[in-house]
Structures are given as C-alpha cells and as structure tokens.
Nucleic acid binder design. Structure first.
Lengths: 135, 135
DNA sequence: TTTTACCCTATAGTTTTAGTAGATTATCTA
DNA sequence: TAGATAATCTACTAAAACTATAGGGTAAAA
C-alpha cells in the first residue's frame, strides 16, 4: 500500500509543477486544493525540502516552490524520499540493502528471486517518469 | 514492504513444491526448516488452504500439501491471497477497486497515472511467474 | 490415545496519520 | 524604526491501525 504521505507528497509536487511561475505557494492553498490535512502536509513538504526537492520562503508571500524543472525530478527520487526503499524486501534493495536474518542463501531464496523482478519492473517505471510526465 | 506473512507463505509453498511426492508435510517441519515462528506459519498455511492453494490432512502422518502442480500456481493468486491487492492504491486495483475520497477526477490524478503503470509492471511479473519458476 | 491440523483470543510492538502548541523568520504598514 | 501580520519550522503527543507472535483449547484421523 502506498502511504498517504507519499500520495499527498506527489499531489503537492504536481500542484506546484502546474503553477505558472515558480513563486511560492502556501501550504494552506495546496492543502485546501488537494483535500489534505494541512498539518500533515506541512511535515511532508518539510521533508521534501530537506531532501532538496523543494525550496521555501517564510513570512508574507512565502510558501513552497520547486527548485528544479519538473522534467528533472525523477520518480525514483521522490519515491525513495517519501516512501522509502523501492524494493519490497531489503535483500533486493539497491539503496537500502540488508541481509535477511532467516534465509541462509540469497541465491536459493524464492522470495528473493521473485522480488528482484518486481523491484526491477518498478524501478523501470520510476526511472521513466519525471514529474513532468504526470501532468 | 512485503509482509512477513507473504514472505513466509511463499517460502512454505516453495518448500512444499520441492518435496518429492505430494505427501503431507507437517507445519513444524516447514517452520523449523525455514526459520519461521510455528504459530504464525500455522495461520498462514490455513489461509492458503482456505483459498484453495493447499490441502491438509489431520492426525498422524498429516500435514499440508500442494493440490496443484507448481507450474499451475500463479504468483498473481499467491500475492493476492497473502498480501492483498497488487495495486498500491485502491483506485487502480483490478480486484479490489475503490474510489479515492479525495481526488475529484481519477483521469487527472498524477498518483493514479503513476500507480497504474506500477501496477501493470508488477502484474506483468506476477503473471509470468508460477511457483515452478521460483524453484 | 497419540498426533496432527484447526480455531479463537490476546497482546506487545511498530507504523501511520494526524493534532497541539508554540518558536522563528520575513514582510508590510504606520 | 516598531510593531503587526503572515507564514514556515520544530517538537511533542496521541489515536488508530496493522504486524507478528504466543497461548490454550478443540476436532479429527491414525
């Protein structure tokens, strides 16, 4: 299941990408427009900013804005920042690899074998989609 | 994240598929061999049986066994039984469709657009893998 | 009467999805 | 320049849902 955090984060990014210029948009506006709890969205936008996907400006006329062009924001990045590993098991994760504590031999593991394929196919989708492709 | 339920279920199915004949194998044997909590595995095997993937026999010499050939057990079925919907959001699910309560227009939704692709790619993998392919 | 699956319940732990309260910073206005 | 206002930022809390497991008893087959 996709977490609401990721869902809302994606919607917010899309909303910002649709904005004409790159002037700051307030949290409240995004929240209202996308039917998102404002406080929840606040924390989501914060992590997007901390991970270099958004810029922010405080005070009057402040808000959040994209710091890259939509076509340069890849879904691999967005998904990893919001949802975490793309792989469904750590033992097939590229960026978050971890050995299973059960499972003596990865090569022999049927779960490993299957999830490797799933990861690759998901990765393929995320690599071929930028924010611009979702507009 | 893949739940341990699914992971253990897959491992158990694989174990049963590797067995020579189709004689019943006891829960305890599978649990021990695959490093799984026996009680947890018990409930997993039960749902697999209830969903037509396994047969069982009580009493001495009892246990669980496959009721189909591994090549006839598709990963789509296994995943749906154990993990639930293959889609990451209900609004792109084939078997568990549900409308999002936010989101006025599915066609316009960026999340929908992306997750549709992810679902299709995952489905592609699951459709092309049977239990026999994982051995 | 032993051996096994079956069934029900409880529970600790974690994750998710928020809500609350206030601090901080930038801008505008008098 | 002072203060009001508008916004992000930060930290803490909490309800709800889900996950993974344990315990104990029942039913059926040999």
């Amino acid at each position: 299941m996709l977490s609401k955090k990721t869902k809302y984060g994606l919607k917010a990014l899309t909303y910002l990408a649709k904005v004409e210029g790159r002037e700051p948009i307030q949290i409240a506006e995004i929240a209202k427009h996308e039917n998102i709890s404002q406080k929840f969205l606040e924390s989501i936008l914060l992590t997007l900013r901390r991970n270099g996907l958004l810029g922010s400006k405080k005070g009057k006329g402040g808000g959040y804005y994209l710091i890259k062009e939509p076509k340069d924001i890849h879904m691999t990045t967005v998904m990893r920042v919001l949802e975490g590993p793309i792989a469904m098991v750590p033992c097939v994760s590229l960026n978050f690899y971890e050995k299973c504590d059960d499972c003596p031999d990865e090569e022999e593991c049927s779960v490993h074998k299957l999830m490797l394929q799933v990861r690759d196919s998901a990765l393929d989708v995320y690599r071929n989609n930028t924010l611009a492709d979702l507009l």
